[in-house]
């Protein structure tokens, strides 16, 4: 089953309330996906010469201070960091390759959840309420956020198997459904140089989009290509540094509802996740059409193209 939710603010004055507006959306979808949950929040941008790395450890008493001190000593440069429960966010100008290499060599048990200028991915096993409380979701600020409540079908219930998935800077994807050609596609993407952390089908969809964007396609073009190349059931919600997109498979096997006002665009598997948003009674509420790409970028709707 699974539930997916997303909230993209057009009105910057709501940014301090992003977590507070989003938490009820995620929790409303808990009975569609009670086994794990996660979200990707965009905000608190670092300068263009820096990157944010979100790390998580399964070990509650992990010595983050020790890790950061050692990283600072070995890599030098500017480094800032903060801790949020079982995760830390490190902001540094040391570059993605060097940080990845250092982590692989010095902290192999730590999971790298996301890399980007804006994105932070936080996720875990357990009821969505536990995950939201663990990371103090309701107090978070930002411009947009995408979340997932998981009822696993294609791979194990684990932190790594929880959504959102990311495979490139500031890009994330949540998925309701199951892909049938993910093994073959994974092999093809590996030949293109993509790397995978899990056996999960949704990670393949994220990697596919990263690859298409790397090849120079726009988000809209990449999603139109996805309609041709991905086989299976899917409703996707995708986040980029300044964009937000929704795509359903051409048969429309999985549900989705969109709501838009002057202040925000919201997406959910079911309307009841949207019922608490401010101004929802006056919002335009509709079901995204199958096989059609919906993209908002820089607070504007960038496309609503027919993909089939």
């Amino acid at each position: 089953m699974c539930g997916i939710v997303g909230l993209y603010l057009k009105d910057p004055s709501l940014e301090p309330r992003l977590g507070e507006l989003f938490e009820p959306m995620l929790l409303a979808m808990a009975d569609r996906g009670p086994d794990s949950a996660g979200f990707a929040i965009y905000g608190d941008e670092v300068p263009s010469d820096q990157l944010k790395f979100t790390l998580q450890s399964a070990e509650p008493g992990y010595d983050w201070e020790g890790l950061v001190t050692a990283m600072e000593r070995d890599l030098g440069g500017q480094l800032d960091w903060f801790r949020n429960a079982t995760a830390v966010v490190i902001k540094t100008d040391s570059g993605e390759e060097r940080v990845r290499e250092w982590l692989a060599g010095n902290a192999p048990a730590v999971s790298l959840m996301s890399v980007g200028h804006s994105i932070e991915i936080l996720k875990g096993v357990g009821h969505p309420r536990l995950v939201a409380d663990r990371f103090s979701l309701s107090g978070m600020q930002g411009s947009h956020i995408i979340g997932h409540t998981r009822m696993a079908t294609e791979s194990a219930v684990s932190m790594e198997g929880s959504h959102p998935f990311t495979t490139g800077l500031d890009l994330c994807l949540v998925h309701n459904g199951s892909l049938s050609n993910h093994n073959r596609l994974r092999l093809e993407l590996e030949r293109q140089g993509m790397t995978f952390e899990t056996e999960n089908d949704s990670e393949v969809a994220a990697a596919y989009l990263t690859w298409k964007l790397r090849e120079g396609e726009t988000l809209t073009q990449a999603l139109e290509s996805a309609i041709q190349d991905l086989d299976g059931f899917y409703t996707f919600t995708i986040g980029t540094r300044d964009g937000f997109a929704v795509l359903r498979d051409p048969i429309a096997c999985k549900p989705a509802v969109l709501a838009e006002t002057d202040a925000y665009v919201a997406m959910a598997s079911e309307y009841r996740a949207l019922a608490r948003l401010p101004g929802i009674s006056g919002a335009r509420v509709w079901e995204p059409e199958p096989g059609r790409v919906y993209v908002w970028e820089n607070a504007q709707q960038a496309s609503e193209e027919t993909g089939t």
């Binding site: 079911e270 309307y271 009841r272 996740a273 949207l274 019922a275 608490r276």
Partner: peptide
């Protein structure tokens, strides 16, 4: 009968 606050309930 008048039913208010359905809020998308099934």
């Amino acid at each position: 009968w008048y039913v208010s606050d359905p809020d998308g309930r099934h």
